[in-house]
């Protein structure tokens, strides 16, 4: 499903060069739930952005759905992102000016889905995350937990092959965090691969595999619940 080989990423300023990732290799299988852990600044979010085709590595190879995307054009990356990937961010990243339904619809809008089908799938997704009654609300009218459930609905509405979640429970209380984890596990149960960055050991333990990063390198990979 997803394979990265010896990717690296550096950030440079005029004074300093930071190695965000060095020779990172990993694979994510179909319907697999992978948790990435590590201390702040170890490169977790950078890795997730590269896996989500939001950023490009400086070196190495990325293969998504059997397709080498290391040197794909921006247009090609957009097409793949649109077709196969859903995102859940720590800070929700809902568009303030759009309603809940319109935010969820964003996951379909750029795929050329018909308006009727979009309506149906948005309703279904909101139903799955328990937010159908909030469809016409604006994000600022929701609690943090509700906003993140909307973000999950937006990620799953298009039935992506891969969901990338960057500390999805980082801004939530325990109860809401567990609810969001349940939603992600439901998605995995339906065959979607999920890669999640988290600081929480207990949440990482709900994944199939746990990858430990330190200073931009993979230091360990642990298969869980086998």
């Amino acid at each position: 499903m997803l394979r990265v080989e010896t990717i690296s990423k550096n950030y440079e300023t005029s004074e300093v060069r930071t190695h965000a990732l060095s020779d990172v290799s990993l694979t994510v299988g179909e319907g697999e739930f992978v948790a990435i852990m590590g201390p702040s600044g170890c490169g977790k979010s950078t890795l997730l952005n590269i896996l989500g085709l939001l950023d490009r590595p400086d070196g190495g190879r990325i293969e998504l759905l059997g397709e080498d995307v290391s040197r794909a054009s921006e247009h090609e990356l957009t097409r793949l992102r649109r077709a196969a990937i859903g995102f859940v961010f720590q800070s929700f990243n809902l568009v303030d000016e759009l309603t809940v339904a319109q935010n969820v619809e964003l996951g379909l809008l750029y795929r050329g889905t018909s308006a009727r089908e979009r309506r149906e799938r948005v309703a279904l997704a909101l139903d799955r995350v328990g937010m159908p009654h909030r469809a016409r609300h604006l994000p600022k009218q929701l609690s943090g937990g509700q906003q993140q459930r909307v973000a999950v609905a937006r990620a799953i509405v298009s039935d992506p092959r891969l969901i990338l979640a960057d500390e999805p429970t980082g801004n939530l209380d325990t109860a809401n965090g567990e609810a969001v984890m349940d939603l992600l596990q439901q998605a995995v149960g339906q065959g979607t691969s999920v890669v999640m960055v988290t600081h929480s050991l207990s949440q990482a333990d709900r994944a199939d595999r746990k990858i430990q990063l330190l200073d931009g390198r993979v230091v360990s990979q642990t298969q869980l619940g086998a």
Binding site: G52, L54, E74, H75, T78, R81, R82, A83, F87, N93, L94, V95, D96, E97, L106, G107, L109, Y110, R111, R154
Partner: peptide
């Protein structure tokens, strides 16, 4: 800017 980033992440092309 952030909204643009979100839309891009959701699959919108720069042209869109």
């Amino acid at each position: 800017r952030k909204e643009i980033g979100i839309r891009r992440a959701m699959g919108a092309s720069p042209g869109e």
